[in-house]
Write a protein that binds this DNA or RNA. Structure first.
Lengths: 200, 200
DNA sequence: TAAATATCAGAATGAACGTTCTGAATTAAA
DNA sequence: TTTAATTCAGAACGTTCATTCTGATATTTA
């Protein structure tokens, strides 16, 4: 009796993510989402229930499509700052191909626009940042000679500094059209981190 | 013949800045602005012309009220990273007193929310970032021994890295309620910069 | 094929938005 | 005090928004 659905929820989420990413939550109207997904209002409200409930699954989709493919290497047990550098390069390359200035990072955008006024989104953003911090800390540990002066506490703080820098970088990528500037800044930053770790 | 105005334009801008800062551009309705300024719609539209034209002067007001009081010391001819550290401390203290998580930086918020879709706002944001970069570069130059290996190009990139970190820090201050974490991250970051500058 | 059900495109709804307008109240010059 | 200019509070206007509803169309089961 039931008619077969020809638009999957995942497909809807793909298009929704793209639109939310490029335009933000508030500036994405349901009209826009209907057009960009190609689905009907009925289908969208049936599958999700509303705009906000459509926004939330985009975080998982963003992880699967964008973050994980580039960041898993940083999470490997033997990863070092070289993998961190490759991660940044990959994200900057992607941003450059998409066009600079670009939409930056979906999570970083949500962090400033939505998270401060929404507990659920805040939780998603914090989860993402915690993942980044764990990965960075892993790389920093492998990079650091075990006989070095830097304490565990210092290394954890440095991992946090890397997260802060990452968010600042995405913010900058929404303003600049110069991909080489982003690359050079990142290289300079990582070189600075390396100098600190290998000891003065 | 004309009745004396008892609400000045500067007064309106003060209240508008406060509201825009705390709520962002899109989430600040004219109803809100009327309530928070205590002025009538007539007065607001007479003095500015509209919402957007009310938003723009807030940048200058933010410079005068928030940025300059803390940042001018970084712009002194003999400023070093010590002044940069003091600047960060002051801003974090202010954020903590206002309440964390807080509204962060008015310019940094506008950078991600408004600037990508508005040339005038983009110009204001770039102007602010350029000011920060000049100040940071000044401090870095004074901190660096003249006989050191770091090139002018490297120092300029480092100044850019400081700006990127700053924006990331404000983003973080919209999420965390832990002022000490912001302080510790900043200290760790500046210590890292110092290590790089004084040479490995 | 016939009946039941899912999906379609888009109209309808009610609230919120930025902006403009209205008429009363207030002020200062005459 | 009278008059003209100005400011007042808030209603009115025309859009736009998220959400719901409607009637037609397409698909599946019986």
């Amino acid at each position: 009796m039931p008619r077969k659905a020809n638009i999957t929820t995942q497909n809807l989420t793909d298009h929704a993510l793209k639109h939310f990413w490029e335009n933000g939550f508030h500036a994405s109207s349901m009209d826009d989402l209907v057009k960009s997904t190609g689905a009907t209002r009925h289908a969208i409200y049936g599958a999700f229930g509303g705009k906000k409930q459509m926004f939330l699954p985009c975080f998982q989709r963003y992880q699967d499509l964008v973050v994980s493919p580039a960041f898993t290497q940083v999470e490997q047990t033997d990863a070092t700052l070289e993998q961190v550098a490759t991660y940044f390069e990959a994200q900057i390359n992607r941003a450059e191909e998409t066009g600079l200035p670009g939409p930056g990072c979906f999570v970083a955008n949500s962090a400033t626009e939505v998270a401060p006024h929404d507990r659920e989104v805040l939780a998603k953003v914090e989860e993402h940042n915690a993942r980044l911090k764990r990965g960075f800390l892993n790389a920093l540990r492998n990079e650091t000679p075990s006989t070095h002066q830097l304490s565990t506490k210092d290394l954890e703080l440095l991992a946090g500094v890397l997260v802060v820098f990452t968010n600042g970088l995405w913010s900058t990528s929404r303003l600049t059209q110069d991909g080489d500037f982003l690359r050079a800044s990142t290289r300079q930053f990582l070189e600075t981190i390396r100098t600190r770790i290998s000891g003065p």
